[in-house]
């Protein structure tokens, strides 16, 4: 396509975005945004509840390292789209958003697990020994010393998982899931390039906002950690 046509498509995408009718209703932007946000937040919570306890305990005990580290590599080799479609064709596929939720959780768990585990293992061994020497129990050591010191890497894992969730939730639209990706797939079905681009802009902005929020959060955390460390 020549540059002129590309510019025209961008203008059309903008007018699609600024048309009030496209924001309301069942397939409207607000509804899709709500679905996307809901899927991301709920699945992030579920993934954290599954991955973090396992990673923190394994990291504390120093066991299962090979699995915790390699699970990220395995997750990368398996195409998200393939998993979404495979789940859709299983009996789970008939149950609303469940295929999407399971796929989202499956792809959010590996970065959480790997980062939290590595974070726990990278805590200075001298500090751990000192804490033991002070008579701390395993539980006190884990929650009072190791987890706070591992927090930066744990949060990095949460951030990677969140960005991954936003991307996977978008892809879920290809397999019939809800969310902002549906605006893109609907655009493809209508052969409307302007709607495809408008949907893509919404998704990209959403993803960048999520990343930006975590970046802002990261700037706040080290101060608190330092405060806790000196107290």
């Amino acid at each position: 396509m020549d540059p002129e046509a590309a510019v025209k498509t961008l203008a059309d995408a903008w007018s699609w975005l600024t048309t009030a009718a496209n924001w309301s209703g069942d397939g409207g932007i607000w509804n899709r945004l709500g679905q996307h946000l809901f899927l991301t937040v709920v699945c992030l919570l579920i993934s954290c509840l599954i991955a973090l306890p396992v990673a923190l305990v394994l990291g504390h005990l120093g066991k299962g390292g090979a699995l915790a580290v390699n699970i990220s590599n395995i997750g990368r080799a398996v195409p998200t789209f393939a998993v979404l479609v495979l789940l859709l064709l299983t009996p789970i596929g008939g149950h609303g958003e469940w295929p999407t939720i399971i796929a989202l959780v499956l792809f959010a768990v590996p970065p959480l697990l790997t980062n939290a585990y590595v974070g726990m293992r990278e805590v200075d061994r001298d500090i751990v020994r000192a804490a033991r020497g002070m008579g701390m129990t395993g539980r006190q050591l884990m929650l009072g010393v190791e987890v706070p010191l591992a927090l930066p890497l744990i949060l990095t894992g949460v951030r990677i998982a969140a960005v991954q969730l936003v991307a996977t939730a978008t892809l879920a639209a290809l397999a019939g899931g809800g969310g902002l990706g549906r605006i893109i797939t609907a655009g493809f079905n209508l052969a409307s390039t302007s709607q495809v681009v408008a949907g893509a802009v919404l998704v990209a902005v959403f993803a960048l906002i999520v990343e930006g929020l975590f970046e802002a959060g990261r700037l706040l955390v080290p101060d608190r950690l330092r405060g806790g460390g000196s107290g």
Binding site: M1, A6, A200, V203
Partner: peptide
């Protein structure tokens, strides 16, 4: 890298078809 793949491909649609 933050932009989801489906959105990335879609954003390139006006340029490459």
């Amino acid at each position: 890298y933050t932009v989801p793949s489906l959105a990335m491909f879609s954003l390139l649609l006006p340029v490459y078809g």
